[in-house]
């Protein structure tokens, strides 16, 4: 498969995520859109890893070329899991205080 396909697919997913962040007001959905963007990046990383592994197929260390990319994806998932746990805790906190998950109520930064 040409790498371009994967690049465009990832960009498309990423931009859908961005459009979601921009258009929605529900904090949980915005959060999910961020997860979607993370996954788009993950997909691209795996694709690049396989691209490099294909290029190095003839080399003696072919077994390790490209593993970095996939390990990065692994770590991104680790961080995302931690982030979601904290982020959802914040959203719960926010709901408890203002009885809404609408980000437009979060305008205290103005003051």
């Amino acid at each position: 498969m040409p790498i371009n396909y994967y690049i465009f697919l990832s960009i498309a997913l990423f931009c859908i995520g961005i459009a979601g962040v921009l258009t929605r007001r529900n904090a949980i959905i915005i959060f999910m859109c961020i997860e979607l963007m993370l996954n788009a990046v993950n997909l691209l990383l795996v694709a690049f890893s396989k691209m490099h592994s294909a290029a190095a197929a003839a080399l003696p260390d072919a077994a390790t070329v490209g593993t970095d990319g996939q390990l990065f994806v692994f770590f991104i998932m680790v961080v995302a899991a931690a982030e979601v746990s904290v982020g959802l805790a914040i959203i719960v906190m926010m709901y408890r205080n203002i009885h809404s998950v609408d980000v437009n109520f979060l305008n205290r930064l103005k003051h």
Partner: peptide, 8 residues
Amino acid sequence: VSSKSVQV
């Protein structure tokens, strides 16, 4: 890179 391909 766009000319390269991915091992599937």
